[in-house]
Design a protein around this nucleic acid. Structure first.
Lengths: 195, 195
DNA sequence: TGCAGCATGTAATTTGTTACATGATTAA
DNA sequence: TTAATCATGTAACAAATTACATGCTGCA
């Protein structure tokens, strides 16, 4: 499932322009399926070329024209087929966790900063999602509410874990310790044991 | 931070071949920073070309040659600089959540299947990570243990959320409708709505 | 006989990100 | 006057995935 399919799905709920879709991608979807104009506009063009959506150009006074896209019957069934047919994946790429994996090569101050920033981001996400959940325009369906609740619960768990376990990373350190040499004592190559 | 940088980081802990690194990417890293041979081998070649790692070819009886990579002093400082310099991101793209957003366009049986499968995956991840956490070879540093604990905690929270809130998605539906096919009826749906 | 493990890599393709390009209106 | 909002899109670039390509050993 790519950006194109999600656009089609959003259009199955209501007609929208690329600009409108971008706003939806910026509210709830931002937290689990981000997309920018660079993906959305080409997706819409493809969808129209495939006959899965129709496009109506709307003139506006004092504003640029809008292109309002509406899903077609063919689009609706294509979308349902793709929901029925694909095995959904959950892909994560976290530079944050990768960095923390190597925490012992980070300065203590820098480490604290990275941890604190992540906690802030997560708490901000929880707060933002909680707001969306209260607004029936932002979460109109049970699916939307489920997803919002999921995001908030997981972000909350992540923030709590970091807060409660940061001591594991900072325990054996003294605040900022000026080291005058980086003794590189490398491990010997012989062993194959790896992980 | 890309695959190249993570490879360099892993080599900062111990020398390894591309094949060895792949195994590391398959154990803990798989859960937050997946990478395949197609990224790893080119990364290693780049690193060597930049003088950040050295490569020793090792002949083996009855097995293909290995190329053992060792980080250089330049590589070590390049790695620390990149840890100090970048703002780490946490990127998620979940087709699973996107699909659930559109749950009302999914058949009830299909929806249950998707939900159940995801719970299974999450529980399997928790179990796998718990094993890694017990093994000091798999989680040798405090950073590794922190990351493992994080992954397990978040996966656990996700599984719990799905299990406790699936009722939100299934509540207004009929369970699986009794079909008058030749197949013998299994248990009649009674408990879907009571979370 | 067939598969899994060991071990290396390349090339084509897909996909998405970032920067670029335009330009009017409205509110601070 | 500055920034934000509205509104469209393209093009260059970066990155990773997938498939391809090879070949020996040991086990069931």
């Amino acid at each position: 499932m790519d950006v194109k399919t999600v656009c089609l799905g959003l259009l199955s709920i209501q007609p929208a322009s690329g600009y409108d879709l971008k706003k939806q991608f910026e509210s709830l979807f931002r937290h689990f399926f981000p997309a920018g104009y660079g993906s959305i506009y080409p997706a819409l063009a493809d969808l129209a070329a495939d006959g899965l959506v129709d496009c109506e150009r709307i003139r506006q006074a004092g504003k640029p024209d809008r292109k309002l896209y509406r899903i077609t019957p063919a689009g609706r069934s294509a979308f349902r087929n793709s929901l029925a047919g694909i095995e959904p994946r959950h892909r994560l790429r976290s530079e944050f966790l990768a960095m923390i994996y190597f925490a012992d090569q980070l300065e203590a101050d820098r480490l604290r900063e990275v941890l604190d920033r992540r906690i802030e981001e997560l708490r901000a996400a929880v707060a933002e999602i909680d707001e969306l959940e209260k607004d029936p325009l932002a979460t109109p369906t049970s699916g939307a509410r489920f997803v919002a609740g999921f995001g908030a619960a997981v972000a909350q768990a992540a923030a709590d874990y970091i807060e409660q376990n940061r001591g594991l990373l900072l325990a054996h350190r003294q605040g900022r310790r000026p080291r005058r040499s980086t003794a590189p004592e490398e491990l010997q190559a012989g062993g194959e044991q790896g992980l």
